[in-house]
Design a binder for these strands. Structure first.
Lengths: 184, 184
DNA sequence: TGGACGAAGGTGATGCGTCAACTAGCCGGG
DNA sequence: CCCGGCTAGTTGACGCATCACCTTCGTCCA
């Protein structure tokens, strides 16, 4: 490994800024949601996906792709949500292996109640702090990084790393803020 | 609560981009570190702080402020790291309540071994993807959000939220990439 | 002197996230 | 028909993060 290139001050500043952003932001959103609606941001993400789907239900596989989790995480999480009656599981008639995850009335009520406060928090701690130009700039940057992340399993970043594989990846959209009830 | 303002497409895009950034980025960095050095990013953050400190040690309080964790999280984490001989605890002679966290030789070796690969990963998945202008822009944005986050405990984001308290907060710097051995 | 208060730190319980391994069902070739 | 390999989903173990609570100690003021 040839002499590593440490970060220069500008790079370091950006990197530190990202560190300082992530953890506390998700923490504060989690607390808001927990306090006001007894939901976690993970719960919220699941409920949004379901509320946006036809029939208020989704195959586990689709959910996994939509919110970018590992399937085992989803499975564990759905089990916990099921025990709180927010969702239920159903068998899939056309694929014996498959499972549908379905939004219950309780779940729908929960997200409809939670959404306004959550959107307000997202605005208050993120969106409303930025100018339209900053929003656009931010999105561009984050999407570039996101695209790089989705193109892995190839060049694992050891050393200088020519990045071998690149490709068009469709952007999926985990954790929208607004549930399907938006505009009702 | 007056009719919530849902996110418009531009706002939604930026928000989604952030969601898509955070989780996978920290996941990939965690995996790189775990695979190559048997450390977590949390371990790394602790070790960097210690390696940057005079005497290779820090009061728990200082560490908590530096990396922005809750004290109980730090306590649990230090216990686990202690059991792996990466750090050790010492009593503070001048404050009976206090505890020093000290970098052991094992810990120093671990971070010196881990640092090059980690920096390479940070470059490969973040820093090197952005132009200098983007880096600066990103830092500015993230710092604005970070500042907002540090000014809470006051306006809790419910509703329209006039944000009452604002103040100068010094930016602390969790999780630098380079340990103090940089440049050796 | 002593007592209230707050700061430093630790602990136990609990829920979350990841990994590795597993079951069960689909699908294609022989 | 059945066998190998694939995909969908689940499970258990384990480490991590948070919450509420506790102890110990410094500090300030009467």
């Amino acid at each position: 490994m040839t002499d590593p290139r440490w970060l220069n001050p500008d790079e370091s500043r950006a990197w530190r800024a990202l560190q300082n952003l992530n953890m506390p932001l998700s923490a504060v959103l989690n607390r808001q949601l927990a306090r006001d609606s007894n939901l976690s941001t993970a719960d919220y993400a699941v409920l949004v996906q379901l509320s946006e789907s036809a029939d208020q239900r989704l195959r586990a596989r689709e959910m996994v792709q939509a919110i970018g989790w590992e399937k085992s995480r989803l499975s564990h999480h759905i089990r916990r949500m099921e025990s709180r009656h927010l969702v239920s599981r159903e068998e899939c008639p056309t694929d014996g292996r498959g499972a549908f995850i379905t939004l219950t009335p309780t779940g729908r009520a929960a997200i409809e109640q939670a959404a306004p406060g959550h959107v307000a928090a997202v605005r208050s701690y993120f969106v409303d702090l930025l100018t339209p130009a900053q929003l656009a700039s931010f999105a561009e940057i984050a999407e570039a990084v996101g695209a790089r992340l989705r193109s892995d399993g190839c060049g694992e970043a050891d050393g200088a790393t020519g990045d071998p594989c690149q490709g068009e990846v469709e952007t999926d959209c985990p954790d929208q803020v607004a549930p399907a009830c938006a505009g009702e």
